[in-house]
Design a protein around this nucleic acid. Structure first.
Lengths: 194, 194
DNA sequence: ATCATATGATAGAATGATCTATCATTATAT
DNA sequence: ATATAATGATAGATCATTCTATCATATGAT
């Protein structure tokens, strides 16, 4: 009995978080009332499921980070696949852009230690792959792995924004990110990879 | 008589805007009271110089855009200098990063038409140079000039943040941006330009 | 059918921020 | 020195938002 109910509650919380994500994507300044309305519930019920606005955002961020982490975990890092790792990461991550983009814009979250810690932990394997690729000689060694990680991350965010404003087609977004990241914008007669 | 006074008023306004910039760099959520305190004036006086918080931000943004515009105007776009244009732009812009960075983070400003228009107008010459370089064959033509402009802009913003957190030395920031923009992160035996 | 639980609507307390109004004080120009 | 203008401190009006409390209603299990 309690089992059936608690599962329902979990589902409802998830539905609320999904709705919150949806409206916040379009209106980052949406109030708690806006969110409750959009989720089709009363403001009182919203507060029954979520402690506070701050906690709501923390939960959204942690959920997003979890999703990214699971995606990264599913991508093989074997020797044979490692060269394709970063392209695969970008390909897999692009579809989730809209759901993550608005969180990154939120300044408050960038001060939350719990979130920063979780984010750093999630990105660690990616950073390790970058270092491996540097040692292998396929990524330049005269830039820190952290810088490269940030550039990749930033290009992803830029692209998500560009997709949302319609300046970049979603289908070509991943290719654009990878191409820009690896080769830059200089015309190169030797650039036969495309 | 009125002349002397009005000049003083202009200066004071500038001093206030400078102070606002300084505190907002460190605390983007600073209230009007915080700003007045930091500027060493009363809240009433602040409102005598500035119509509203919104207008204050608009003024700060327009001022920043003006500064960037003046910098861009001073850089020659002759045929002989055009290859050095983008590196020069980055070199000249890096020192102003901290004063502009916080404005970009502000979501509200990205909805203001006046500012978006001014920004687009300022960046137009830079975009034209990019297109010229594309036609010249020194920048790849399979990416839109707008995308390249955005990438450059984004890398600048990233770098400003990295400089502020101490992850990148201010002196090497410009080189890092240009190098990343033009060549990407792929190890390249033929990359003799550095 | 009944009882426990969940929900929605509403009112409102508490908070925080922006902006105005007022007035005594200070600075400035002539 | 005096008149004019600018300033600071303060109080408070206004507004928006978050969050709580309450109660009547709806849902759901047994």
């Amino acid at each position: 009995m309690s089992n059936g109910r608690s599962v329902t509650k979990e589902n409802k919380l998830n539905a609320i978080l999904d709705a919150a994500t949806e409206i916040l994507v379009n209106k980052p300044t949406a109030s708690m009332n806006d969110i409750a309305d959009y989720a089709g519930i009363g403001i009182a019920t919203l507060h029954r499921y979520v402690e506070s606005r701050e906690q709501l955002f923390v939960q959204l961020a942690l959920r997003a980070i979890t999703v990214v982490g699971e995606i990264l975990d599913q991508i093989p890092t074997n020797d044979e696949h490692i060269e394709a790792y970063i392209p695969t990461v970008v390909e897999e991550l692009i579809p989730y852009g809209d759901k993550i983009h608005f969180l990154i814009q939120d300044n408050q979250l960038y001060c939350n230690e719990e979130i920063l810690k979780a984010e750093a932990k999630i990105l660690e394997p990616l950073r390790e792959v970058i270092e491996t690729l540097q040692q292998r000689g396929s990524i330049r060694q005269d830039m820190s792995s952290e810088w490269i990680l940030h550039v990749l991350y930033t290009l992803l965010i830029l692209t998500w924004g560009q997709v949302q404003t319609g300046h970049v087609a979603k289908r070509s977004a991943a290719k654009l990110v990878i191409d820009t990241l690896f080769h830059g914008v200089k015309a190169n007669a030797a650039a036969s990879s495309r």
